[in-house]
Each structure stands twice: as structure tokens, then as C-alpha cells.
Amino acid sequence: ATNIVGKVKWYNSTKNFGFIEQDNGGKDVFVHKSAVDAAGLHSLEEGQDVIFDLEEKQGKAYAVNLRIK
């Protein structure tokens, strides 16, 4: 899925991951530091509006192509 809109539920910059809540009511999506770095960001803030693509690997969904809304 592409261009999914959501809000950062939480992001832990020490542990380098967090979760994004989808605006469409879907399951929360894992986001890793690598996606944050690829977006040219240092971190994510709770409540921040983002747009992302959804990829699945080994049955787990995660956010890629992250951008600030």
C-alpha cells in the first residue's frame, strides 16, 4: 500500500523504532530508524502527521518512504 496517512503514536530514538497510527483505522505500523534516516529526519515526534508506504516482510508490516505531511 502507498501514500498512507497517519500520526506518530510514539518513537524511541534510543531504541531506534516506534509506531505510526494509521488514520484509516488499520493496525499500528512499525517504523525503524532506517526509514527515519532515509527521510532525512533525525527523529519523529509523538502526534506528528506523516505519509508512508507499507511493506511486509516475514508477515510483519512496516513503514517505508516516510515523509512529513
Rank of each mutant, 00 (worst) to 15 (best):
K57F: 15
F52E: 00
I51K: 13
L44T: 01
D53E: 04
D37F: 13
V8H: 01
K60S: 12
K15R: 11
S43E: 10
D28Q: 15
K60H: 14
L41C: 03
D23A: 09
E55D: 11
K9N: 03
E55R: 15
I20A: 01
K57W: 08
N12H: 12
L66K: 00
L66A: 01
F52I: 06
F30Y: 10
G18H: 01
G18Y: 02
I68T: 12
V31Q: 00
V50L: 11
V29I: 15
I4V: 11
K9G: 03
V8K: 00
E46F: 14
E55K: 11
F30R: 02
V31A: 03
V36K: 04
A1F: 12
A61E: 10
I20M: 05
I51S: 06
L41M: 13
F52Q: 00
D37K: 12
S43Q: 14
I20N: 00
A38F: 11
T14W: 10
L41F: 15
V36L: 13
A35P: 01
E46C: 04
E45D: 12
K33V: 13
D23V: 08
G6H: 01
A61D: 13
G40Y: 08
D37R: 14
Y62I: 07
Q48D: 15
D37E: 13
S43M: 15
E21C: 04
N12S: 15
A38R: 08
Q58W: 10
G40P: 02
K57G: 15
R67P: 00
I20G: 00
A61G: 07
D49M: 09
G40M: 08
N12M: 08
G6F: 01
H32V: 03
V50G: 01
H32A: 06
K69R: 14
Y11L: 03
A35W: 06
N24A: 14
F17T: 02
G25N: 12
Q48Y: 07
A35M: 09
G25K: 13
V36A: 04
D23F: 14
F19A: 02
V5S: 14
K57Y: 11
D28E: 09
G40K: 10
L54M: 13
D23C: 04
